Simulated scan of single mutants.
Amino acid sequence: MAQLKRSRDRVIAGVCGGIAKWLGWDVTMTRILYTLLTIFTAFAGVIVYIILWIVMPEE
């Protein structure tokens, strides 16, 4: 399996693009799902996003 890396196809930091590429999903759908998940989990997704931004290496 490929290594999880931030994508150069980015809106903010490339985290959702990297996750989409790693899972083989559509980037737009991944961003929509991540946004919905963030809203429905009382914005815990923002903290996870920042952590992934720091931890994930760039492509």
Rank of each mutant, 00 (worst) to 15 (best):
L36F: 09
I39A: 05
M29S: 12
V55M: 13
I54F: 14
R31N: 13
A42Q: 11
R6Q: 15
K21Y: 03
I19W: 07
L23I: 04
P57Q: 14
F40V: 09
L23N: 06
T30H: 02
V15E: 03
M56P: 01
Q3Y: 07
C16F: 07
L33M: 06
W25I: 01
L37V: 07
Y49P: 05
R6T: 12
T35N: 09
I32N: 01
V46S: 13
Q3M: 10
R8D: 13
G17L: 00
V48E: 05
K5C: 13
I47C: 08
I39G: 03
A2D: 03
W53F: 07
G18C: 07
L37I: 07
K21W: 03
E59I: 13
P57I: 15
L33W: 01
W22L: 05
I54R: 15
E58H: 14
V46F: 05
I19L: 14
L37F: 10
M29I: 08
M1F: 05
G17I: 00
W25D: 00
G18E: 01
V55E: 13
T41E: 02
I47N: 10
V11D: 15
F40P: 03
G18H: 00
T30M: 11
F40N: 02
I50P: 04
F40C: 04
I54A: 15
I47P: 07
Y34L: 03
I32F: 04
A20G: 11
I47S: 14
V55I: 15
C16Y: 12
Y49G: 06
M56Y: 01
V15K: 01
F43P: 05
I19S: 08
L4P: 14
W53Q: 09
P57R: 12
I51K: 14
Y49N: 06
F43G: 06
K5E: 15
K21M: 02
D26M: 04
A42G: 15
C16M: 07
V55H: 11
A2S: 05
R8T: 15
M1A: 09
V46L: 12
W22D: 06
I51N: 09
W25P: 01
L52R: 07
K21N: 05
K5M: 14
E58F: 10
I50R: 15
L52I: 05
W25E: 00
Y34P: 02
A44P: 03
W53E: 07
E59Q: 14
E58G: 15
G14F: 05
E59W: 08
T38R: 09
T41W: 02
T38A: 14
L37Q: 09
L52V: 04
V48K: 08
T41G: 04
T30Q: 07
V46K: 11
I19P: 06
I19K: 09
F40Y: 11
D9Y: 11
K5F: 07
A2Y: 01
